[in-house]
């Protein structure tokens, strides 16, 4: 469904600070794939997601979605196909808008925006139903400013907004990393529910190996801008944290981050 062929991404190209962020990366993402992505700091995980979303233009290679070449589509145009949740909970919502206004903006993702009413009374029911799934009581606070919500609540709202209009591809960029452990666990459960209930094609970057192993049907390990492991279905379910660490040591020339090591201990609420 999504076909990425030999993409390369450089930063500061031609200067002494040149970084080759993504190296000849190719991958076919099937309809309904839930892929978790792990890798050390600077492996290119977030850069890869940004290349898919169009935030970064690739220097070479092609990206196709359903047979359409979207390589040169700007970010806002790709948003028709892609829903996103960022690491920073403040990035995915408008603090000065109400919950209803934010939901209404998300309902128009990838559609033309005209002079019709921004928040339509007829949509409020839909908003309430979608927010009810969160179990956070947000459905009764539609007129509250989003700036009043906690980071976890804002991230949950972002998740609902990203999937309010069914995306062809859902990109989750370490979307639980900035949350406290309990909220992160709830967020993860919500992710599992929304993604599996709707059969969404999803890419999720994480620093937590247990998350990567427990969620999804496919696991990708990245290192220095390349995919060094692509485990599907059975191969993925037979993977263990130890096996992943071993892979890191052999393929990754031993440089795994402290954060990665810390995350190998079993999380409290997972």
């Amino acid at each position: 469904m999504i076909c990425v062929q030999n993409i390369n991404k450089y930063f500061h190209r031609g200067s002494v600070n040149e970084v080759h962020g993504i190296r000849d990366l190719s991958i076919d993402i099937e309809q309904g794939d839930f892929i978790t992505i792990i890798g050390s700091n600077g492996a290119g995980k977030s850069t890869f997601l940004s290349c898919l979303a169009g935030t970064h233009a690739v220097n070479s290679g092609t990206i196709g979605v359903h047979g359409t070449d979207v390589t040169h589509w700007p970010e806002y145009k790709r948003a028709r196909l892609i829903g996103r949740v960022f690491q920073d909970p403040l990035k995915g919502t408008c603090a000065n808008g109400t919950i209803a206004q934010n939901m209404a903006l998300a309902l128009k993702r990838g559609k033309p925006r005209g002079l019709g009413r921004g928040v339509k009374v007829t949509d409020l029911d839909l908003f309430r139903r979608r927010l009810q799934v969160l179990g956070l009581g947000l459905e009764s606070r539609l007129r509250d400013r989003v700036g009043l919500l906690s980071g976890g609540q804002r991230q949950a709202l972002t998740m609902v907004m990203a999937t309010l209009v069914r995306p062809d591809l859902l990109l989750l960029d370490e979307h639980t990393a900035a949350l406290d452990p309990k909220t992160a666990a709830q967020m993860l459960e919500l992710t599992r529910t929304i993604v599996t209930d709707n059969g969404l094609t999803t890419l999720m970057v994480t620093h937590n190996m247990h998350q990567a192993l427990n969620l999804g049907n496919r696991l990708i390990m990245m290192h220095q801008g390349r995919i060094i492991l692509d485990a599907r279905a059975d191969e993925k379910s037979s993977l263990t944290v130890e096996a992943l660490l071993h892979k890191f040591h052999t393929q990754g020339e031993g440089d795994i981050s402290d954060r990665m090591l810390l995350n190998t201990s079993r999380p409290m609420h997972a």
């Binding site: 979303a53 970010e75 806002y76 145009k77 948003a79 028709r80 892609i82 996103r84 960022f86 403040l90 990035k91 995915g92 919502t93 408008c94 603090a95 000065n96 808008g97 903006l105 998300a106 128009k108 993702r109 990838g110 559609k111 925006r113 907004m161």
Partner: peptide
Amino acid sequence: DNRHMITALGV
């Protein structure tokens, strides 16, 4: 208010 967010929503 939030250019990241609204770009990601297709504006």
